[in-house]
Amino acid sequence: MATLLLADVTDGKLATDAVAKALTAVAPLGEVHLLVAGQGGDAAAAEAATLQGVTKVLFAPDHALCHALAEPTAALLVALAPSYSHLAAPSTADAKNILPRVAALLDVMVISDVTAISDAETFERPIYAGNAIQTVRSSDPIKVLTIRTAGFAAASTGNAAPVETVPGAQDPGLSQWLEDRTAHSGRPELTSAPVVVSGGRGIGSKEGFEIVEALADKLGAAVGASRAAVDAGYAPNDWQVGQTGKVVAPNLYVALGISGAIQHLAGMKDSKFIVAINKDAEAPIFQVADFGLVADLFTAVPELTEKL
């Protein structure tokens, strides 16, 4: 039996990188069908069909499925589930919202944040903020998984899978979308950026974050932040990298004024190269950094930006 992969779609736009990485993760399981849900998702469905490894795109152009509300989207997945051995999705906020609901409706466990698929029943996932890796074997008839995409390469394009329209399931009418307040920046998206520059409490103020952003722009990087920086109001919530924020694994991660608490490391310690600048030589971030510099950020970072 095949795998059904729920595609992340926001305002009709496919989260291509996340979906392409999740595709690579589930490819060893065999045939993959991609589900694009929501009215106005025609372009997303067409784009999904170009991803290598997709055998078929299921497109549910139903108004109730816009904004990925958990109740109607879960109802649709449950209706489609009998034809599949695995239901999966990249571990985005939407998938984390929807898939556990689907699993419970099917009376199976959800396997969250899978980092490796060993075989059809055996999966690896990080626990305790990434301080341990658990290998689990599922005895459930249908496996419901969310994929931590950071460790997988994105599947390429060039495919031309057929797109089949499917009806949406009945909307239970329990919830209603009101509004989105999304921050638009011209920068690359945090979870898919090859370079990430993050600031922590050491940045000191919202204005201070300009030195982080300037270095990020110089490197064509996405901007991240530690929880401390977000809590202090220096940076918006959706920039948070860590156990409870986003998990990133770029080629280069630059940590500025970040001490390196367990919860932050959980979100970035799989980065290929880590560079840290901190004025405290004892900061735990230096234990995971490939290159470190003990210095005052406000002189060192602008100088670094200029010299790179």
């Binding site: 985005t92 979308w177 989105d180």
Partner: peptide, 11 residues
């Protein structure tokens, strides 16, 4: 708190 920012819903 969603990936791109904030979302309001009524339940």
């Amino acid at each position: 708190e969603v990936d791109g920012g904030l979302q309001s819903i009524q339940v």
